[in-house]
Computed example of a mutant assay.
Amino acid sequence: MWNLPNILTLLRIGLIPVFIAIYYSSWEWHNLIAAAVFGVAAATDWVDGYMARKYDQVTPFGAFLDPVADKLIVVAAMVMLLEVHASPWFSVASIIIIGREIVISALREWMAEMGYSGTVAVAMIGKVKTWVQMVAIAVLLAAKPENELLTNLGFIAIYIAAGLTLWSMIHYLRAAWPQLSGTTTSK
């Protein structure tokens, strides 16, 4: 259980209160430092998965904790950014992103209970969605609201992430539809 990929995943979770505390500090460059810490945490998502596969260190604990860490860091940042970028458009994107995480987590749990966990395994669209979200969030953390260019780039990226979020949710729901609709009875 205590291998480097799992330690990196735990580090990602541990960095959440760090980037939040830095973001809310009064330091001159607090937003850039918080974005950098968030970026380091986000990068551990790729590194821990790569290392776990390459060095055959995939564990049940890591398989459970990795997606949880991703959801925690994204939701924490989105909720925090809602305060700074309070607008209906950012709220809609946030609800889509956070809502999808809840729906897909519940779907995966239910599918695993039914014995169909492979049906909703992570797909490439889910990985792309995660990385676009992470980049968009890092940009928005770095952007002060008065920096219109960076803020607008962050908004464009978060809207793209919201679109990919919907697309990935539809992908997973379509894959699970035979079990959800009751049209498949055999495993």
Rank of each mutant, 00 (worst) to 15 (best):
I20Y: 09
A21K: 00
Y23T: 02
Y24P: 01
Y24Q: 02
S25K: 07
S26N: 11
W27P: 14
N31E: 15
I33L: 15
A34F: 01
A34I: 04
A34Y: 05
A34S: 11
A35P: 13
V37F: 05
V40T: 09
A41Q: 00
A42H: 02
A43C: 01
W46I: 04
W46G: 03
V47T: 06
Y50K: 05
A52D: 08
A52T: 09
R53A: 03
D56L: 09
D56V: 01
Q57Y: 00
Q57E: 07
V58N: 03
T59L: 09
T59I: 11
F61N: 03
P67V: 02
P67C: 06
V68Q: 07
V68M: 13
D70Q: 03
L72P: 08
L72T: 00
I73S: 05
V75R: 06
M78I: 15
M80K: 04
L82Q: 11
L82Y: 10
L82R: 04
V84I: 15
P88M: 13
W89P: 12
S94Y: 00
I96K: 04
I97A: 12
I98N: 07
R100V: 09
E101L: 04
V103S: 06
I104R: 05
A106N: 08
L107V: 12
R108D: 10
E109A: 12
A112Q: 10
M114G: 07
Y116E: 15
Y116L: 10
S117E: 13
G118E: 14
T119S: 06
V120D: 08
A123C: 14
K127W: 00
V128M: 07
V128I: 11
K129I: 03
K129C: 00
W131S: 13
V132E: 05
Q133S: 12
M134N: 12
V135E: 10
V135D: 11
A136I: 08
A136K: 08
A136C: 07
I137V: 15
I137N: 09
A138D: 11
A138K: 03
L140R: 08
A142V: 14
K144M: 14
P145S: 06
P145K: 04
